[in-house]
Write a protein that binds this DNA or RNA. Structure first.
Lengths: 221, 221
DNA sequence: CCGTGAATCGGACTAGAGTCCGGTTATGGC
DNA sequence: GCCATAACCGGACTCTAGTCCGATTCACGG
């Protein structure tokens, strides 16, 4: 089953290392010593392609790790050594988008990038993050399952960014904790509930989230 | 194994139905038609006592549902029919405390109960809730696993309460959504991370959470 | 071009959550 | 006191995440 080695991986989008925003506990990405073995690289691409296709076709929850391993033509051990667990695999699939947003924040134009006022940058970030969330909700939800949310590499980035904005705005609230609290508002579980469970629109949610964030920045004790 | 029916359940604290704040999807509590069968009531008490003892002795994560069933002297089917799943069992163990807080909010003295200003009531609630969280963190964390958080009966109560306070304070933010966002700040996963992962004190966290909540109430668009 | 050893591979294995259903038992009516 | 029946009981079963380790394969130096 599954195609052969050099097969039809049409839209090849998974390069090597890249990521500023991954790094989970286990499941290495860029081997320390020598460079990545070619079979390992091939299998990584196969797994990601198979996972994406299966998730798309059947929905994230109806796909087991065995399904993915079989479709990719690799053993389960390979899956787990490389991605750590199901959440890690989901995160790998999201890596590209997250890195894009991170780069836009670090070096892009305002208001997302440097230059705008803290309040504007925070609004722009939350808006962009909610875009990402809305586009791949199931994947993000899976990446945040089982307490992985706060330990994913990407989370540390968002948190640092938001904390810096809170501090820059002169809020009296502890910036590190405030950042956690603001980000809690865009947790996948909550967003999914609001969107699908309560039928709220993206705009309603974004409005409330940015309003709360603005209130935090504006707080003067 | 395990003691017999009328055995040493010294501190009997689990009455019948009570709860304003339970009601999960499956796992009935108060049988609709006839009253609860006596053997069912006995088994419910046994299960709760066994679960509490095992959780206390070994820690929540080292106890399996089979362990609890065996210690309680019942089959797994009984466990699951009555409590739905592991999260439901944890919630049942927390029921007593949650009901107490709910009653204090509904009919107790200010600032927790009616009479105080919205800001004070919200602060008092968050403080009391964090007490509950801090006291039984593992249990609350288990009750919120697997997306159960937003669907537990107790959550609906807290949410309605907070929404009412937001509305009463005249905030321009959608009260229902704002309530979700405020409560997201006291999710067990986040609290556990701050407390154990980052070593923050209860006071630091409470301070930031109440400050954010105050900022939401004070928001004027 | 070949030997060497470290990294990778993959499928059998473990463990625990949650489901199912035939047998048993309490309860209310007569 | 007895019967019918609905509810309850419990352990075998399924399903899936995640682990382990012997066999295999690639990358590099000579």
């Amino acid at each position: 089953m599954a195609e052969d080695g050099t097969g039809p991986e049409s839209a090849s989008q998974w390069g090597v290392p890249v990521s500023v925003g991954r790094q989970r506990a286990s499941g290495r990405d860029a081997p320390a010593g020598r460079s990545e073995r070619s079979d390992a690289a091939r299998n990584r691409r196969r797994v990601l392609a198979a996972a994406q296709a299966l998730f798309r076709d059947r929905g994230v929850d109806a796909v087991t790790m065995d399904d993915i391993a079989a479709a990719a033509g690799v053993g389960k051990g390979t899956l787990y050594r490389r991605f750590g667990d199901k959440a890690g695999l989901a995160e790998a699939l999201l890596d590209h988008r997250e890195v894009e947003l991170q780069e836009a924040i670090l070096t892009g134009p305002p208001p997302l990038g440097p230059g705008a006022a803290p309040g504007e940058r925070l609004s722009a970030f939350l808006d962009a993050y909610i875009d990402l969330l809305d586009a791949d909700l199931d994947l993000v939800a899976m990446a945040e399952r089982s307490g992985a949310r706060l330990h994913a590499g990407a989370y540390a980035f968002w948190r640092t960014h938001v904390a810096a904005l809170v501090r820059a705005a002169g809020s009296p609230i502890d910036p590190q904790v405030a950042a956690h609290l603001v980000l809690a508002g865009v947790a996948a579980e909550l967003y999914e509930h609001l969107r699908r469970g309560e039928g709220r629109s993206r705009a309603e949610i974004t409005g409330a989230v940015t309003a709360v964030a603005a209130a935090v920045l504006a707080s003067r004790g």
